[in-house]
Design a protein around this nucleic acid. Structure first.
Lengths: 204, 204
DNA sequence: TTCTTAGGTATATGCTGTACGCCTACGAAG
DNA sequence: CTTCGTAGGCGTACAGCATATACCTAAGAA
């Protein structure tokens, strides 16, 4: 009976991510999102109870196309690899939101469904009890950490540059590694690290 | 010639960490730290140029006793394991500062020296070029991610509880994993995941 | 036409980090 | 012992933040 809503949660999330994409995470405030939508700041509170909820909405929007169903195939490592790659690809479209993803990971339904699929595949691979707990947490840890390292926080510039300028006398191996790193595509870096983990899983 | 400093950077960092330890990261403001020191807020700016620098000071203070020299021994995985464990143990004394560690990792001299040692051990183990880049980043990713998962951000309560209360019908494997997780000591979880990575490294 | 309900907004509050300008404690130089 | 320059310390002020509260209003139902 009353006035109908003029905004969908989706539109809200889209505007939030648009602000982050354009001006960075540091520019994300209730005001900037409201401006993006052409509304007053307080109008947002008709749709979300606080900023945290807005951020979660943004995270879910970024992950909206993430396929959380189990990949086909027989080889468990292959299936896990595909699942992890999907997250990286999806998040890669909006790298500025990575810190939001990290902060709200445990409240994201999409990520929980993703984890459920991972857990099921680990079970199918014969892992249970402690070994499954360890494997699941390790995969999540690597994913969270790798995404963050790849898209260094909004406060700093590209982190590889910082490391590449280390004094060579004091950090010979790091300097060399940083030099090499510039020739290694980020894709390969992520996939390579993931493979280490999966190989360890298969070997265990 | 003029008035001498009444505070050392060390004392400043100690006070900062004390605030976080006692009241959580959310309570960390220039004002609370100043109060902790019995000074005015603006007095802090005689020692640091901004909040970021204060946070970095706190990170370095937390890591002050971290031994970044190479562990003795012949087995590279054993040496890497020891290095990673040292970080976890050191950070474990002040878990509330984990998000600060993550944010300032690339500006922390201590963590850079730690990475240098890791890179050297990887070199000693015969890893160079792309393989060393991948291994180093993978270890860092796991470390960063695992520390965060272990000490879930200051905004949320203990995250395992959230997951343990998932609807069992929708998340059968996650529910079961969460149940199992309560019987797995955090130490074992960290060490187990690390072992997966190290085993993958040895197998490659 | 009127009533009800929720949408939208203006205003205000108490935080935050920090720029600015002042006063003052202090060690050196006379 | 006095004086002076320097830097430490602080009071005030300000813009920007999330958000509580109170209000006005658009619009469907009767």
């Amino acid at each position: 009976m009353p006035r109908p809503r003029s905004l969908s949660p989706d539109r809200l999330a889209e505007a939030t991510v648009a602000v982050v994409d354009r001006d960075g995470l540091g520019a994300l405030t209730m005001r900037t999102v409201a401006t993006e939508l052409g509304m007053s700041t307080m109008a947002l509170y008709r749709y979300v109870s606080d900023r945290d909820e807005l951020e979660l909405l943004a995270v879910e929007w970024v992950l909206r196309d993430l396929d959380t169903t189990a990949p086909t195939g027989d080889d468990p490592p292959d299936r896990l690899r595909a699942l992890a790659q999907r997250v990286r690809d999806t998040v890669g479209a909006h790298p500025g939101t990575v810190p939001l993803l990290v902060r709200h990971r445990h409240r994201s339904g999409t990520l929980l469904r993703w984890s459920e699929t991972v857990a099921r595949i680990l079970h199918d691979a014969g892992l249970d009890g402690t070994r499954r707990v360890v494997a699941l947490r390790a995969l999540l840890s690597y994913l969270i950490g790798a995404l963050q390292l790849e898209h260094l926080g909004p406060l700093s510039g590209p982190g590889t540059t910082v490391i590449a300028h280390l004094p060579e006398a004091e950090f010979p191996y790091m300097s060399d590694t940083a030099r090499q790193a510039r020739t290694v595509p980020a894709d390969d870096e992520f996939a390579g690290g993931l493979d280490l983990l999966l190989r360890g899983l298969a070997a265990g």
